[in-house]
Amino acid sequence: MSIHDIMNFETKRAIKNALLIQIEEVGFERVTVKNLAITANINRGTFYLHYKDKFEVMEDLQQELLNELESYVKNVQPLDAFHTIKTGQLYQPFIEVFKCIKEHAAAFRVILGEQGSPAFSKRMKKVFSNHILDRISVIREEGLDPEFQRYFGAFLTSAILGVIQEWLDHGDEDLNVEELAMIHFRLLRFLGDLASLQK
């Protein structure tokens, strides 16, 4: 990477960090390019060399987060996860997903928050759905039913995102990823125990 590329990367990073700061302070609707430039310690001309407006900054930031999240979510294999949970062990790919969330906790919290982007939670759910739902659907014939699959996808992805948001919203980043994975494990085991009561 050339010095020019490094400078471009660092400037774009500064602008994205400025966006997060401004969203927390005034909400996305009231963010202006002028204040982004001031917060990023650049002039407006420099801003426009990299982005055309605040919406493009938001899209770049969201896509960056989603790409990294997806790189870990795609390693989750539900059958392996269930077998691991049944043996009372933590599932390593889950831990890697939580590590990703923890590393970017501030960004996820701001964008998922009331002042951020309402569409971002749907995009996160889509990442989980694309890589986990299809793998679960083939386990049982019921999972092949399109209507069931749609509602199960909504239930599953909302549950995953709900755990993540609870963690972020309550400032529990001091809870390490292994502890969060254990809570996730306990939730899944609890649901499994409830299901077994029907037998």
Rank of each mutant, 00 (worst) to 15 (best):
Leu175Gly: 01
Ala105Pro: 08
His50Trp: 03
Glu24Val: 02
Ala105Gln: 13
Arg189Leu: 01
Asp169Phe: 09
Arg109Ile: 01
Ser71Glu: 07
Ala154Trp: 00
Asn67Ile: 03
Asn17Arg: 11
Tyr72Leu: 08
Phe128Ser: 03
Phe108Glu: 10
Lys102Ser: 15
Ile136Cys: 12
Val73Trp: 10
Ala18Cys: 00
Arg123Glu: 15
Gly27Glu: 06
Ser2Pro: 01
Phe148Ile: 14
Ser117Ile: 10
Gln22Pro: 04
Phe108Met: 11
Leu133Lys: 05
Asn8Val: 07
Met182Tyr: 11
Lys16Glu: 13
Glu147Thr: 15
Val163Ala: 12
Glu70Phe: 08
Lys126Glu: 14
His104Asp: 12
Asp174Arg: 13
Gln77Ser: 10
His170Asn: 12
Phe120Pro: 06
Leu191Lys: 04
Ala40Ser: 00
Ala195Phe: 02
Ala81Gly: 10
Pro118Trp: 05
Glu25Ile: 00
Met182Glu: 13
Ile42Trp: 06
Lys16Met: 09
Lys99Gln: 14
Pro146Asn: 08
Leu20Glu: 04
Ile101Leu: 09
Phe120Arg: 11
Asp172His: 08
Asn41Lys: 12
Arg30Cys: 00
Val163Asp: 07
Glu10Leu: 14
Leu133Val: 14
Val127Pro: 04
Glu64Gln: 15
Asn130Gly: 10
Glu64Asp: 15
Met182Thr: 10
Ala18Gly: 02
Ala159Asp: 02
Gln92Pro: 06
Gln198Lys: 04
Arg44Asn: 10
Tyr51Leu: 06
Val138Met: 04
Ala40Glu: 01
Leu161Asn: 01
Glu96Lys: 11
Glu10Ser: 14
Leu144Glu: 14
Asp172Val: 00
Phe28Gly: 02
Glu173Trp: 05
Ser129Pro: 00
Glu178Ala: 13
Val127Asp: 12
Ile95Pro: 06
Glu179Trp: 06
Val110Met: 06
His170Ala: 04
Ala40Trp: 02
Leu61Ala: 13
His170Pro: 02
Ala18Met: 03
Lys34Phe: 10
Ile21Met: 09
Lys122Gly: 11
His83Cys: 05
Ile132Lys: 07
Lys199Leu: 09
Arg13Val: 01
Asn67Cys: 10
Cys100Glu: 12
Gln115Thr: 14
Lys74Gly: 05
Ala195Thr: 01
Gly153Ile: 01
Arg13Ala: 12
Leu187Ala: 12
Leu36Asp: 03
Ala37Asp: 01
Gln63Tyr: 06
Arg123Leu: 10
Gly143Phe: 07
Gly116Trp: 09
Tyr91Ala: 06
Gly113Gln: 14
Glu147Ile: 14
Tyr51Glu: 08
Leu144Lys: 12
Asn8Arg: 11
Pro78Gln: 07
Phe28Gln: 05
Ile111His: 09
Phe128Asp: 01
Phe148Asn: 10
Gly116Phe: 00
Gln165Asn: 06
Asp145Lys: 04
Asn41Phe: 07
Arg135Glu: 06
Leu19Thr: 03
Gln198Ile: 07
Ile183Thr: 11
Gln165Tyr: 01
